[in-house]
């Protein structure tokens, strides 16, 4: 990963967006990887089929936290359908397929193969939330 990519990652890890914010009446989903000790909760507020707000809390490694922060920033305001497309593209990117991803999410393209699973952590939760919708 490049120096620039690392910088973005560290920025989101050390000062994640939307972490530990109020979430009264939000829908809660838990995200955890079988193999890791990472454990985060996403809290989601839908407005009809739009993801009006998402916040999170919990403990996880740098890559997972940065990935969560970036994912949330990119998903807020998206419709369910747009979100599904975004999630799909993110998954494809991790499988080394070429696809467009907005703002900062593409930094995960170059993380070590063994750590890709960390980047997927928040997606486990958001997929659950979308499925329930």
């Amino acid at each position: 990963m490049t120096e620039k990519e690392r910088e973005i990652l560290m920025k989101h890890y050390l000062n994640p967006k939307n972490r530990n914010m109020p979430h009264d009446n939000y829908e809660k989903v838990n995200s955890r990887n079988e193999s890791c000790i990472d454990n985060i909760n996403l809290y989601i507020k839908w407005n009809k089929d739009i993801l009006e707000d998402i916040v999170f809390d919990g403990e996880a490694c740098a890559i997972s936290i940065a990935s969560t922060s970036i994912m949330i920033e990119n998903l807020i305001g998206k419709t369910k359908k747009e979100a599904e497309e975004y999630i799909n593209n993110f998954t494809k990117m991790l499988q080394n397929e070429d696809c467009f991803l907005p703002k900062e999410a593409e930094i995960f393209k170059n993380i070590p193969e063994a750590r890709k699973i960390c980047a997927t952590l928040p997606y486990i939760g958001i997929k659950k939330a979308i499925l329930k919708k």
């Binding site: 050390l14 890791c36 000790i37 990472d38 403990e59 996880a60 490694c61 740098a62 936290i65 750590r115």
Partner: peptide, 10 residues
């Protein structure tokens, strides 16, 4: 301080 244990292990 401020670093997740798994990152220290990595």
């Amino acid at each position: 301080n401020g670093i997740f244990s798994q990152d220290v292990a990595y």
